[in-house]
Every structure is written in structure tokens, then in C-alpha cells.
């Protein structure tokens, strides 16, 4: 009786608290949605890397163009930059959870900057390879042209994720500074950024180190 009285006085769109079930995962919906996206994206990257592995194993003369200097060294620097950006993102999340908005925004800015550095180093590698005659359909070393297709496809897909991540971090940081978003939003954004880092943990050894000369 009391319940129906409450509902009759409630306006349209009002939600009765008792009608909501507790989440089985104990996390907010946005965080669960991010985890589901990460799972699907992991399957996508897995499929792309498996396809690359299939072509590499099946090819007779797979090219190995990456000399230690500058390509592998560049890859090492990129890996260190991306790992450090994960650390700065964690610091941003910790600051947000302690209510330190200014520190959170600064650390998110550092994360975005490191992400931009990663993207710049990656593009510099790409343009160097274009200059040497590499493209998604050409192989100046005379080996299978699939090398270019797989290399630029895999690293391009990852670079797209990095770029979107940097943009998202900047937007979230600006909204956090204005007080419109909470620590939960920062944490959810952090999940995406750590996933991008995690994918690079597979891309660097499988695409760069396996093709080192």
C-alpha cells in the first residue's frame, strides 16, 4: 500500500529504488560495459594477430627488416613510453579516488602526452618505412607483400586505439576539471588505456621482435 502510494506521487520517469537489482559484479554499469568492450576488442586483436601468424608461418621467405638501430630501439622506447603512461594513468585514478581533482587532471595530461609521444614515434617509424618503399601492398626486400599488409594493418589498428584513447583522456580530464565527471569515469577510461598497453605487449614481440634482423 505504501509502495503504490509512493509510486502514485512519483513523477513520470521516476524509478522505485526497490525495483533495481544489485549488480552481480559489484561494479557500475559503465565499468562493466568497458570490460565487455575490452573483451570483444581483445578477440579482434587476437584474430588479427593469429592471421598474421598464419601468413608468417606459411610464407617461404618472410621479410625481417627491423635492425636493432633504429627500429627495435624505437620499439623499446615506445614500449617504455606506453608502460609509463599506464603508470601515470593509475596515479590519476588514485588522485581522483582521493578527491584530488587538480592532481588527477595533471596526471591525465601526462598520460595523454605520453600517448601522443608514442603515436609520434610510431608515425615516424611508418614514414621511414614508406620512404624505404614499404606499403600495405609492396615489399622492397622482395619477400611476400603480405608483410606490409599485416604490419601496417596491425600497427595501424593499435595506433587508432591509441589516438582515440588520447582524445578520450583529454576530454575526460577537461570534464573532470569542470566537476562534471567522477573518479569512476577516470577509472573506466583507465581500463581502456591499460588495454591499449596490454595489446602492445603482444604486438611488439610478435610483429617487431619476430622480424628483427
Amino acid at each position: 500500500m505504501a509502495e503504490s502510494a509512493m509510486m502514485s506521487h512519483a513523477g513520470p520517469g521516476a524509478v522505485h529504488a526497490g525495483a533495481l537489482e544489485e549488480s552481480a559484479y559489484g561494479i557500475q554499469t559503465k565499468k562493466l560495459a568497458m570490460w565487455l568492450f575490452i573483451t570483444a576488442d581483445a578477440a579482434t586483436f587476437g584474430a588479427v594477430l593469429f592471421a598474421y601468424g598464419y601468413l608468417r608461418v606459411g610464407a617461404a621467405n618472410w621479410s625481417r627488416p627491423f635492425a636493432f638501430f633504429p627500429s627495435i630501439l624505437n620499439g623499446i622506447v615506445m614500449t617504455v613510453v606506453l608502460l609509463t603512461s599506464s603508470l601515470t594513468m593509475l596515479t590519476a585514478v588514485a588522485a581522483a579516488q582521493r578527491g584530488r581533482t587538480a592532481a588527477c587532471v595533471r596526471w591525465m595530461g601526462a598520460t595523454a602526452l605520453l600517448g601522443a609521444v608514442f603515436a609520434a614515434l610510431h608515425l615516424r617509424e611508418w614514414f621511414k618505412m614508406f620512404h624505404e618503399g614499404w606499403s600495405p601492398s609492396t615489399n622492397p626486400m622482395g619477400g611476400p607483400p603480405q608483410f606490409g599488409a599485416t604490419f601496417f594493418g596491425i600497427t595501424g589498428l593499435h595506433l587508432l586505439h591509441v589516438t582515440c584513447g588520447v582524445l578520450a583522456i583529454v576530454v575526460i580530464a577537461l570534464m573532470v576539471r569542470r566537476g562534471r565527471l567522477t573518479a569512476a569515469h577516470v577509472e573506466t577510461t583507465g581500463l581502456y588505456w591499460h588495454f591499449v598497453d596490454l595489446v602492445w605487449m603482444f604486438v611488439f614481440p610478435l610483429v617487431y621482435l619476430m622480424n628483427a634482423r
Partner: peptide, 23 residues
């Protein structure tokens, strides 16, 4: 800025740095 209940637990910065070094 609010803190959500599920985010009060978790590793310390020392753990994060240790994991970073391990990686």
C-alpha cells in the same frame, strides 16, 4: 569528486611501481 565504494580497495602505488618495473 565522489569516491565509489568498490574503488576503495586495490593496490598501493608501491605495488604499481613494482609491477611497472617487472613489466
Amino acid at each position: 569528486m565522489t569516491t565509489s565504494s568498490e574503488s576503495r580497495h586495490g593496490p598501493t602505488m608501491r605495488v604499481y611501481v613494482t609491477v611497472w618495473i617487472a613489466l
